[in-house]
Amino acid sequence: MDFISRELVVAGSPVHYRELGADLRPTLLFLHGAGGAESALPFLQRFAGQLRIIVPDLPGFGRSPDPAWLDNIHDAAYACLDFIESLDLRDLHLVGTSLGGWIALELAVRNASRLASLTVIGAAGIRPGQIPTGDLFMWSPEERVRRLVADPALAERILALPQTPEQSDIAMRNHFTTAKLCWEPRFFDPNLEKWLHRIRVPTHVIWGAEDRLFPVEYGRKLAGLLPGSRLSLMAGCGHLPQVEHPDRLAELVGQWVRAA
């Protein structure tokens, strides 16, 4: 079974998304991180035949153009709310990684009425304080790969993959939109943590124990700000569990969705 490409217009701008199992329920909406949706597709494919999966290319990422109104993380969150309402998604299991996790948190603070549960994986969004974080913008593309996964052999395999011109254009655009949304303040919204208590749906925080972009202390701090949330650490895993340990992550997320 493969994803079907679709398009939806949000606030006047087309948003490309992929869908799997349109007739299945419940629905899992996946918000990708700074690197885009493509690398998460094999992980999401593990839910084929079990869940309806929807994977938008966030505005300015992948095949979704960069709309004139996209200036900050709040614009991205409101666009996702519009997207959810346009598709009339309900009882939704929202899953976001990294930047997508941050957008999921911003979205849920504003309106969680359509969510059955929330899962954030290595999510940005809160003030790091003195927790040492990596600088995605200072790292070269190669360093990014090496530092985002825990297993050096996996890094080598990723670096050896050929890149089509379209993929390299998309990578450049993704990095550009990431800067637009995350450069300053660096990967956080100073006001977000004041309102995280508004998220009252069951919330799961998943973190790679060897995350070098947002180390595990950052995950603990985030979980502490989300009342009643569950924290799961993944041993031997860096910032990209969906790439590094897709089976273990699918098991964690699958169990969570069934229990919620």
Partner: peptide, 18 residues
Amino acid sequence: MPIEMLLPPGYSSLESMK
């Protein structure tokens, strides 16, 4: 300086960046 420092994302248009 490294290219990441000289040309942070968005500093130049995508076309000039390439």
